[in-house]
Simulated assay, not measured.
Amino acid sequence: MNKYSVDKLPRDIRIEIAHKHRKLRKQRGLSQTELAERSGVSLGSLKRFETKGQVSLESLLKLVFVLGRLSDFESILKPDENLKHIEKLFDSKRKS
């Protein structure tokens, strides 16, 4: 966390996701080698992810697919339900 803010930084979230992933993998009874083989992600990439939180989005999605949690990602970056504020932006541009 930033020492001047209570908001988490991207690296904080990245490490949290890596720790959660590792815990889930262990709960499923999978070794890193087994998960790497099943997912098609290299063992080195998996180890780097679980220790440093660094992984490509494609590899992350492959890993969570094997763990049965791909649906967790379906709600990420979902647009706001209330689009009236966006409609106002376009209406004001048309009047100009």
Rank of each mutant, 00 (worst) to 15 (best):
K3I: 13
K3E: 15
K3M: 14
K3Y: 10
Y4E: 06
Y4R: 05
S5L: 05
S5M: 03
S5F: 03
V6N: 05
V6R: 10
D7T: 09
D7I: 07
K8L: 14
L9E: 14
L9H: 01
L9K: 12
L9F: 09
L9N: 10
P10H: 03
P10C: 06
P10E: 11
R11D: 15
D12G: 11
I13G: 10
I13N: 09
I13R: 15
I13D: 11
R14I: 01
R14E: 07
R14M: 08
R14N: 03
I15P: 01
E16T: 06
E16I: 08
E16W: 04
I17E: 06
A18K: 01
A18M: 01
H19D: 11
H19P: 00
K20E: 00
K20W: 00
K20C: 00
H21Y: 07
H21R: 01
R22G: 09
K23I: 12
K23P: 06
L24W: 02
L24V: 02
R25S: 04
R25Q: 12
K26C: 02
K26A: 06
K26I: 10
R28G: 00
R28D: 12
R28W: 07
R28L: 13
R28T: 12
G29F: 13
G29M: 08
G29H: 11
L30E: 02
L30Q: 06
L30F: 09
L30R: 06
S31W: 13
Q32F: 03
Q32L: 10
Q32C: 03
T33K: 10
L35N: 07
A36D: 03
A36E: 00
E37S: 15
E37T: 15
E37K: 15
R38P: 09
S39R: 06
S39P: 01
S39M: 03
G40S: 08
G40T: 05
G40D: 04
V41P: 10
V41W: 06
S42V: 11
S42R: 12
L43P: 10
L43Y: 11
L43I: 13
L43A: 10
L43N: 09
L43R: 14
G44D: 05
G44P: 09
G44Y: 02
G44L: 01
G44W: 00
S45G: 05
S45H: 05
L46D: 05
L46I: 02
L46R: 07
K47M: 14
K47T: 14
K47N: 11
K47G: 12
R48A: 12
R48D: 13
F49E: 04
E50S: 05
T51G: 02
K52A: 10
K52L: 08
K52I: 00
K52N: 13
K52H: 09
G53Q: 02
G53A: 08
G53C: 08
Q54L: 11
Q54K: 12
Q54W: 05
Q54I: 13
V55H: 00
V55S: 06
V55L: 14
V55Y: 01
S56C: 01
L57H: 07
L57I: 11
L57M: 11
L57C: 09
E58F: 08
E58P: 00
L60E: 08
L60P: 01
